[in-house]
Amino acid sequence: MSTPDRPFVSYHLWSLVAPAKGQEHWHCQMRRGFIKARQHEPQVKALLAKVTPPQRIGILAQKGVYEFHHHLHWLTQSDGVEKVAHLLGLSHAHDVVKQRVLQILQRYHHTPLLLGKRILQLTSGDEGYPKPIVIEQHNYCFRLYAAMDCVFIESDSTLHILDFKTGKSAFDRRQALVYLLAARYLYPGKRAVASFYNLEICKKSELITINNQEFVSLEYELANIAHKHQQDLHKYQSETRNFSQIFPPNPGNHCRFCPFNSICEFSEFKPGIMPKVVQQHTPTPVSE
Score class of each variant (00 low, 15 high):
1 M>V: 05
5 D>L: 12
14 W>V: 10
15 S>Q: 09
18 A>F: 07
25 H>M: 10
27 H>E: 11
29 Q>A: 14
35 I>A: 14
36 K>S: 13
36 K>E: 15
41 E>R: 09
41 E>T: 05
43 Q>C: 05
45 K>N: 12
46 A>F: 03
48 L>Y: 03
53 P>G: 10
54 P>N: 01
56 R>L: 15
63 K>I: 07
67 E>Y: 13
71 H>D: 14
72 L>D: 08
72 L>W: 07
77 Q>N: 14
79 D>A: 06
81 V>A: 09
85 A>N: 03
88 L>N: 01
88 L>C: 02
93 A>M: 03
94 H>G: 09
102 L>N: 15
103 Q>N: 14
116 G>Q: 01
121 Q>E: 14
123 T>S: 04
123 T>K: 00
124 S>P: 09
128 G>A: 09
130 P>W: 00
131 K>E: 15
142 F>M: 01
143 R>I: 02
145 Y>A: 02
155 S>Q: 12
156 D>S: 01
157 S>V: 04
158 T>Q: 11
165 K>I: 03
168 K>C: 08
169 S>W: 06
173 R>S: 12
175 Q>G: 03
187 Y>T: 03
187 Y>M: 09
197 Y>L: 13
200 E>C: 05
202 C>K: 08
202 C>M: 12
203 K>F: 05
208 I>G: 06
209 T>S: 13
211 N>A: 06
217 S>L: 10
222 L>I: 01
227 H>V: 04
237 Q>H: 15
237 Q>V: 07
249 P>V: 00
250 N>W: 02
260 F>M: 14
260 F>V: 11
281 H>W: 04
288 E>S: 10
